[in-house]
């Protein structure tokens, strides 16, 4: 009797050894289901790469890569079409140049202000405003460029075109300021305060702490934020479509109408180019060019911030 009771207790105690999980339990199924869903993001990338390559392959059968990459005329809809992408790249470059002249110093300066100078209250007030600025749709920025910045430029320099690279570039710059400022500030905030204390204890002014200690220590993060900001400027579409015009050219005149790669894609896909024609496929050829350029910049930014990441001991 006593023995039986004992063995029963032992059985109960060891019950964990007997209960087996059902093969179809949620706990077993969920990782598989979730992993499958996670695959969608991989499929997206594959999709982008495959459609860009296959659709532009058709284009490159009709137009040689050399003509595309080095031609200085872009007139795909003319009777005698020319398919040199350089004018579009030039347009994109001009916009990016103006945008970086506006956004890099201002974004950098405001990052230093927010991370080193601003009292906490001021910072808590300003950060949300920058977030709002970052959340405004680009179509609104484009409208702002067209109806506010352009008239101002025309007032100062009357011969400016209604559509011009300068206005669009300035506004693209305004658009990327919040991004550059907040990414740079993140990098600066990652510098431990012990380094600042050491510098202050030696009699440094705030400026010296900022420029001689904090900025050098967060340099890679700051540069990465610049590269990401420029990549965003290159890919920006609606501001340039609305305000910079649709005239691909190589004149490097900021007061005249130009066309960027992105604006070309939007404008052309709105029109009635026949599906499957060479003209239709230009949007993929331009698209893959844009994709490769921004991809390289994004990888570069990631590389800079990983490779040169500061380790603070």
């Amino acid at each position: 009797m006593a023995r039986m009771k004992q063995s029963k207790n032992a059985k109960e105690l060891n019950s964990f050894m007997q209960k087996k999980k059902g093969i179809y339990s949620w706990d077993r199924m969920m990782p598989i289901i979730l992993a499958t869903i996670a695959g969608i993001s991989v499929l997206t990338t594959i999709g982008i790469v495959v459609i860009l390559i296959t659709e532009s392959a058709g284009f490159f059968q009709a137009v040689s890569i050399t003509e595309f990459l080095f031609g200085t005329q872009w007139t795909p809809l003319f009777a005698d079409p020319k398919f040199g992408v350089l004018p579009l790249i030039m347009g994109t470059f001009m916009i990016t140049l103006v945008a970086s002249i506006v956004a890099l110093p201002i974004g950098f300066g405001s990052a230093i202000y927010l991370s080193e100078y601003a009292p906490r209250k001021v910072r808590n007030f300003i950060k949300p405003i920058l977030e709002i600025l970052a959340g405004i749709p680009t179509i609104v920025y484009g409208f702002f460029a067209l109806t506010f910045i352009t008239p101002i430029i025309k007032m100062v320099i009357p011969q400016t075109d209604l559509f011009n690279a300068l206005s669009a570039g300035i506004v693209v710059g305004i658009m990327i300021i919040p991004m550059i400022s907040s990414l740079s500030e993140d990098a600066m905030n990652a510098v431990p305060s012990s380094l600042r204390n050491a510098a202050y204890a030696m009699g440094s002014t705030k400026l010296e702490v900022a420029l001689k200690v904090v900025v050098p220590a967060s340099f890679s993060g700051i540069i990465a934020s610049f590269v990401l900001g420029l990549s965003r400027a290159i890919g920006e579409t609606m501001i340039v479509t609305l305000a910079a015009g649709a005239l691909p050219n190589m004149d490097f005149d900021f007061l005249k109408s130009i066309q960027t790669m992105t604006a070309y894609i939007v404008t052309t896909s709105q029109g009635d180019t026949a599906y499957g024609s060479v003209e239709y496929r230009t949007i993929y050829a331009v698209g893959i060019t844009l994709f490769v350029i921004t991809l390289i910049m994004n990888i570069l930014a990631g590389y800079i911030s990983r490779k040169f990441r500061e380790e603070y001991e």
Partner: peptide, 17 residues
């Protein structure tokens, strides 16, 4: 990494996709 890169793809390229 792929997700990080997708976040940086210009929106117009998604249009083409």
């Amino acid at each position: 990494t792929n997700i990080a890169n997708l976040a940086g793809v210009p929106s117009i390229v998604y249009g083409l996709l």
